[in-house]
Amino acid sequence: MSRLLTRRRVLTGLAAPFVLAGCDRLGQAPAFREMVLSSGEWLSHRVHRLLVGDALAREYPPEAMSPDFRTNGNTRPRSATWQRQAERRFTDWRLRVGGLVEAPRDVSLAQLRAMPARSQITRHDCVEGWSAIGKWTGVPLGTVLDSVRLRPEARYIVFRCADDFSGMPYYESLDLRDAFHPQTILAYGMNDADLPLGHGAPLRLRVERQLGYKHAKFLTGVEAVASLSGIGRGQGGFWEDAGFYEWYAGI
């Protein structure tokens, strides 16, 4: 069982005294349970930020790289546009960078590769309980955001993706502190080769201080927003909207 799910159950269990006291209706009320879970996530976020700050995730030597780095989640989007782009080796793919910015732009894979790159060998920790170490190469997200000049009201960065689950588009989001962390990159390479299709080609997010579901694959857009409330169900990501995982997945 994952650490996040365990913590959710513990926090939900805070309602138990109300049940024992005869307040079963309050303990089972969705609004009350949501209040308890939201408070726990807020506390987790604040405590993790206090303890970890802007520290770097551990980086490993090449000999530590996993011989088999499994894929997870979607491995081939059903989108006809993505499939056509994949057949053309993504030569006509573009990343839309917009939202609350002064200079929105569409960026090609070649343009991203021409920007200053960063490579890092890090451990990917999945919420399902497995880990693997791999090498990722890409452009720091902060470099891309600086190129479009965020407006003062921007607070979050939303990542749009080509894949979906049961017809619901996948998306994720970060606050600006994690977006500008030096190890947060838009990766187009893995293990000294082009990013494989199953790992999110042509471009995926790597946010090394958070669990794997935050590392959105098959990116199509990066959007600066003031609030997450009007996107999806307002929880900041596909799995968060579904109620499975927390928005802040710091490790």
Rank of each mutant, 00 (worst) to 15 (best):
residue 2 S to Q: 03
residue 5 L to V: 11
residue 6 T to G: 05
residue 10 V to N: 00
residue 13 G to Q: 03
residue 13 G to K: 08
residue 13 G to H: 06
residue 14 L to S: 02
residue 19 V to W: 06
residue 19 V to T: 07
residue 20 L to K: 01
residue 21 A to V: 00
residue 23 C to W: 06
residue 24 D to Q: 08
residue 24 D to W: 00
residue 25 R to N: 06
residue 25 R to M: 06
residue 26 L to P: 08
residue 28 Q to T: 10
residue 28 Q to E: 10
residue 32 F to G: 03
residue 34 E to C: 00
residue 36 V to L: 15
residue 43 L to E: 13
residue 44 S to Q: 13
residue 45 H to W: 15
residue 48 H to V: 11
residue 48 H to L: 15
residue 49 R to L: 15
residue 51 L to G: 09
residue 51 L to C: 14
residue 51 L to T: 13
residue 54 D to H: 13
residue 57 A to Y: 04
residue 61 P to I: 11
residue 62 P to R: 14
residue 63 E to F: 13
residue 64 A to Y: 05
residue 66 S to N: 12
residue 69 F to K: 12
residue 70 R to Y: 10
residue 71 T to D: 07
residue 72 N to D: 12
residue 75 T to R: 09
residue 77 P to C: 02
residue 77 P to G: 03
residue 79 S to Q: 08
residue 81 T to K: 04
residue 83 Q to Y: 02
residue 85 Q to A: 11
residue 86 A to S: 08
residue 86 A to F: 03
residue 87 E to R: 12
residue 87 E to A: 15
residue 88 R to S: 08
residue 89 R to P: 02
residue 90 F to K: 11
residue 92 D to H: 11
residue 94 R to T: 13
residue 96 R to S: 14
residue 102 E to N: 10
residue 103 A to Q: 13
residue 104 P to L: 01
residue 107 V to M: 08
residue 107 V to R: 04
residue 109 L to M: 09
residue 111 Q to Y: 00
residue 112 L to Y: 05
residue 114 A to S: 13
residue 115 M to H: 03
residue 115 M to Q: 13
residue 117 A to G: 08
residue 124 H to V: 11
residue 126 C to D: 15
residue 128 E to H: 05
residue 129 G to C: 11
residue 130 W to Q: 05
residue 131 S to E: 11
residue 132 A to T: 12
residue 132 A to C: 10
residue 134 G to T: 05
residue 136 W to M: 03
residue 137 T to R: 13
residue 138 G to W: 05
residue 139 V to L: 00
residue 143 T to G: 03
residue 146 D to A: 10
residue 146 D to K: 08
residue 150 L to C: 02
residue 150 L to Y: 02
residue 153 E to Y: 00
residue 153 E to N: 07
residue 154 A to N: 00
residue 154 A to W: 04
residue 155 R to N: 06
residue 157 I to C: 04
residue 160 R to Y: 02
residue 161 C to H: 11
residue 164 D to G: 01
residue 164 D to E: 14
residue 165 F to G: 01
residue 167 G to R: 03
residue 167 G to I: 05
residue 167 G to T: 08
residue 168 M to Q: 07
residue 171 Y to W: 05
residue 171 Y to Q: 04
residue 173 S to D: 07
residue 173 S to Y: 07
residue 174 L to M: 10
residue 180 F to Q: 07
residue 180 F to D: 03
residue 180 F to P: 10
residue 184 T to H: 06
residue 185 I to Q: 09
residue 187 A to M: 05
residue 188 Y to D: 14
residue 192 D to F: 04
residue 192 D to S: 10
residue 194 D to A: 15
residue 200 G to N: 08
residue 201 A to Y: 04
residue 201 A to T: 04
residue 202 P to Y: 00
residue 203 L to K: 02
residue 203 L to M: 01
residue 204 R to M: 04
residue 205 L to M: 03
residue 208 E to P: 15
residue 210 Q to W: 00
residue 211 L to S: 01
residue 215 H to F: 09
residue 216 A to N: 02
residue 219 L to S: 01
residue 220 T to V: 09
residue 227 S to P: 05
residue 233 R to C: 12
residue 235 Q to F: 05
residue 238 F to T: 13
residue 239 W to L: 13
residue 243 G to S: 14
residue 245 Y to N: 14
residue 245 Y to H: 15
residue 247 W to F: 15
residue 248 Y to H: 15
residue 248 Y to V: 12
residue 248 Y to N: 14
residue 249 A to L: 12
residue 251 I to C: 12
